[in-house]
Amino acid sequence: MAGKAEVTVITYRGIFQEVEEALGMYSEGYRDQSALVVLDKGEVKELGVEDGQPVILENGFGKVVVTAKLSEDPHPGVAFMPSSPWSAQLASGEVGEDGILDLKRFRAQVSKANEAVTTIEEIGERIRAA
């Protein structure tokens, strides 16, 4: 089973995420709307990844566990993720010459997770950690 797939993650904003953010970013609702990744169903089948189950997303910048949403429409090699504290843990910390950050796009590896979805408190702790 266990394997990893390399994908380009594109971030986006969704209205229900914005609504939950306004209503409180420490809520479960905000986590449900933010800590997720939309994956190409056909592509991740071999990884044993199932719809609604947690997956690990990791790269040289960080690692988070989020919920997988499998889409029927094929988009091979590409995954979509709400832009949020979860996606920020994977975004490149390299700053362009012009000071612009690429928060909308990064590469990451996906694999099946046996752990729970990362909480916002955990992200906060990581940021604070020395």
Binding site: M25, P85, A91, G93, V95, L101, L103, R126, I127
Partner: peptide
């Protein structure tokens, strides 16, 4: 910014 900046920069901010 701690929520939006890449994790590595958020750590610097902290």
């Amino acid at each position: 910014p701690a929520a939006v900046l890449p994790g590595t920069l958020a750590k610097k901010l902290a």
